[in-house]
Amino acid sequence: MSYDTDHVRNAGRTPERITGIQAFTDLVDNAALAGLYTSIRNRETATGPELVDKAAVSKKTVYDYLHKLERAGLITEAGAENGAATYTAEDFEMTLTVRDVAVSITPALVEVLSRRDEYSVIDRILEEHGLLTFALAHDLVRAHNEGDITIRQIGDLTGLSSGMTYDLVDAIYAIRGFGEKPSSPETYTPDNVGSEQPDTDSTEE
């Protein structure tokens, strides 16, 4: 069976039933759920007991989350180890349209979102600026790591304050393991600052 429609493109096999759409959006809002998915994905395979040992939530919550992720097709049972089921994470991409702009939720974005309790700037940007701005900022930080953009430009393009921009760059560098972290924040000097207060420490990252 092969078909193409406006919303579904099939490579020749009967499509699987997609359930638990709420689980996808919960990955954005629930750091513990996002962290569980990310732990399985980073390990390639993981058992319930292994995840319970590392989780910051209760054993019951871990298994509730495993069932939720499995029902949504985000993880699948891959076998057993010492009598416990082993799970593997599925790659995915979910695209949402916000103000005529398509925003994709991917495992890479979920990995960063899973650390929002550790890096408060992530939560602040989501709460104050929304998912669209956060996703854009995330991608611009990756471009910064590749030498294609400055921290000043990230702030200009996203509308984030200089301090928030630097904090996010620092957080994503740590989470994604990007080379060396930026050593110091850029100093933004408003145009109306008088010459008696020169910005002698301004740097361009």
Results as ranks from 00 to 15, higher is better:
Pro49Gly: 11
Pro49Leu: 09
Leu51Gly: 04
Val52Gln: 07
Val52Ser: 00
Asp53Ala: 15
Asp53Leu: 07
Asp53Thr: 12
Asp53Gly: 07
Lys54Ser: 08
Lys54Thr: 01
Ala55Leu: 07
Ala56Cys: 03
Ala56Ser: 13
Lys59Phe: 01
Lys60His: 10
Val62Gln: 04
Tyr63Phe: 13
Asp64Tyr: 10
Asp64Leu: 12
Tyr65Arg: 15
Tyr65Leu: 08
Leu66Ile: 12
Leu66Gln: 04
Leu66Ser: 04
His67Arg: 14
Leu69Glu: 02
Leu69Gly: 01
Glu70Ile: 05
Ala72Asn: 06
Leu74Thr: 00
Ile75Arg: 07
Thr76Asn: 08
Glu77Ile: 14
Glu77Trp: 02
Glu77Gly: 09
Ala78Glu: 09
Ala78Lys: 11
Ala78Arg: 10
Ala80Ile: 07
Ala80Glu: 15
Asn82Trp: 09
Gly83Lys: 06
Ala84Phe: 09
Ala85Trp: 01
Ala85Met: 10
Ala85Leu: 12
Thr86Ala: 10
Tyr87Trp: 11
Tyr87Pro: 02
Tyr87Asp: 03
Tyr87Ile: 12
Glu90Arg: 15
Asp91Cys: 02
Phe92Glu: 04
Phe92Asn: 09
Phe92Leu: 08
Glu93Ser: 14
Met94Gln: 12
Met94Glu: 08
Thr95Arg: 11
Thr95Phe: 02
Leu96Phe: 15
Val98Trp: 06
Val98Cys: 03
Arg99Trp: 06
Asp100Val: 10
Val101Arg: 15
Val101Pro: 00
Ala102Cys: 03
Ala102Ser: 13
Ala102Gln: 15
Val103Ile: 15
Ser104Gly: 07
Ser104Arg: 13
Ser104Ala: 14
Ile105Thr: 08
Ile105Gln: 03
Ile105Gly: 02
Thr106Met: 05
Pro107Arg: 04
Ala108Asp: 15
Ala108Glu: 14
Ala108Thr: 13
Ala108Tyr: 04
Ala108Trp: 00
Leu109Val: 12
Val110His: 01
Glu111Tyr: 00
Glu111Arg: 11
Val112Thr: 14
Val112Asn: 02
Leu113Gln: 04
Ser114Asn: 05
Ser114Lys: 02
Arg115Gln: 15
Arg116Asp: 11
Tyr119Ile: 03
Val121Ser: 03
Val121Thr: 13
Ile122Phe: 03
Asp123Gln: 14
Asp123Ala: 15
Arg124Tyr: 11
Ile125Asn: 02
Leu126Arg: 13
Glu127Lys: 13
His129Phe: 12
His129Ala: 14
Gly130His: 08
Gly130Phe: 05
Leu131Gln: 03
Leu131Asp: 07
Leu132Val: 11
Leu132Arg: 13
Leu132Thr: 08
Thr133Ser: 09
Thr133Asn: 10
Thr133Gly: 01
Phe134Asp: 05
Ala135Cys: 03
Leu136Met: 13
Ala137Phe: 06
His138Gln: 07
His138Arg: 10
His138Cys: 06
Leu140Pro: 07
Leu140His: 03
Val141Leu: 09
Ala143Tyr: 05
Ala143Asp: 14
Ala143Ile: 02
His144Asp: 10
Glu146Ile: 03
Glu146Ser: 10
Gly147Trp: 06
Gly147Asp: 10
Gly147Glu: 09
Gly147Pro: 05
Asp148Pro: 00
Asp148Glu: 15
Ile149Glu: 04
Ile149Ser: 03
Thr150Asn: 08
Ile151Thr: 13
Arg152His: 09
Gln153Phe: 00
Ile154Gln: 00
Ile154Cys: 00
Ile154Leu: 04
Asp156Ile: 12
Leu157Phe: 08
Thr158Phe: 01
Thr158Ile: 01
Gly159Asp: 09
Gly159Thr: 11
